[in-house]
């Protein structure tokens, strides 16, 4: 091919720039605001921050002493932000792990062991997405109470995986279905049991697809706002989103914005690290025999 003319290069470059700005701007904008002092927030330039400060973030971690009757309980945070952070991480890790374990098991069954009607099973599982989410929290609440999980993080560990599971099972089982059978068979002949072949061969070689499923789960879980705020009531039990949503942080509180951005840090870091794997995994799931 001949080298591209300058205008094609320029066009390509500006398209890239446009796409990047479009995608990043709202987040950049929010970050900028969260680094501002109240004065600058009102009078400064909206697009840049002249005197960046972490005071909004510090506010989240501030400890206010509120003396109660007992000595041991003497210290309480104004926002139990560290608890929220811990809860959030627990929920993220737990949901991704649960989804992956349950999803891989189901996907292996459907894609590789193929019980009669496996396609219909897979479709039925995927069809869970047609259930409208809007009102689901009302009956779900009854379920959660029946199970004795109200105001418990475990309730989210129950609900979140179901939001990501159908897609993960769909994707993983398509992947397992197209995986050459011979690789597993070779392992069986080489002396592995079915379980050994699965854990030593199938699972490690599927890493990109597992990453993709994990990232999808993380993205789904991290984007929820509603379920967390409906099911978690006591401040100490809340996740960051639920917490910031319920206590009286109005939208104009910079602390709130700072807080939610903190939440984004782990999610975005993980996503960035595995972003290429995400695409590779999705691709592998789509290619026959990848």
């Amino acid at each position: 091919m001949n080298p591209k003319p300058w205008w094609a290069k320029l066009g390509h470059g500006s398209l890239m720039l446009l796409a990047t700005v479009y995608c990043v701007f709202p987040i950049y904008f929010m970050l900028v605001q969260s680094l501002k002092t109240p004065e600058e927030d009102v009078f400064g330039n909206p697009f840049i921050v002249m005197n960046p400060t972490l005071e909004n973030f510090e506010e989240l971690f501030e400890r206010k002493s509120e003396v109660r009757g007992f000595v041991g309980d003497a210290l309480r945070r104004s926002y139990p932000f560290l608890d929220w952070l811990a809860n959030t991480l627990f929920i993220f890790v737990g949901s991704v792990a649960a989804t992956l374990v349950i999803g891989v098991a189901a996907a292996y069954a459907l894609g590789r062991l193929r019980p009669p009607g496996f396609r219909w099973w897979r479709r039925a599982i995927f069809a869970a997405y047609v259930i409208p989410q809007t009102l689901l929290f009302i009956p779900l609440y009854q379920v959660v109470i029946t199970l004795g999980l109200d105001d418990s993080l475990l309730a989210l560990l129950l609900i979140y995986p179901t939001m990501a599971l159908p897609f993960c099972v769909w994707m993983l089982s398509a992947y397992f279905q197209h995986l050459p059978r011979e690789i597993e068979e070779a392992a069986l002949i080489e002396g592995a049991s079915r379980a050994t072949a699965f854990f030593r061969i199938i699972l490690p070689m599927s890493r990109p697809v597992l990453v993709a499923a994990g990232i999808f789960t993380l993205g789904t879980v991290a984007s929820d706002f509603m379920i967390a705020s409906v099911f978690l009531l006591t401040p100490n039990n809340q996740t960051i989103t639920a917490g910031l949503g319920t206590f009286d942080v109005a939208l104009d509180e910079l602390a709130a914005v700072a807080g939610v951005n903190l939440l984004a840090i782990p999610v975005v870091t993980i996503s960035a690290v595995f972003a290429r794997g995400y695409v590779r995994g999705l691709t592998a799931a789509m290619v026959e025999g990848a």
């Binding site: 796409a19 990047t20 995608c23 990043v24 701007f25 709202p26 987040i27 904008f29 929010m30 605001q33 990232i215 993205g219 991290a222 984007s223 929820d224 706002f225 989103t241 949503g245 939208l251 709130a256 914005v257 939610v260 951005n261 939440l263 984004a264 999610v267 975005v268 996503s271 960035a272 972003a275 995400y278």
Partner: peptide, 20 residues
């Protein structure tokens, strides 16, 4: 950059948009 809008927690970025 293109991956970011989806990866960024929606509960967070929606505030960004709302703010903007």
């Amino acid at each position: 950059a293109i991956f970011l809008p989806w990866a960024y927690p929606a509960g967070v970025s929606v505030i960004g948009w709302y703010w903007t």
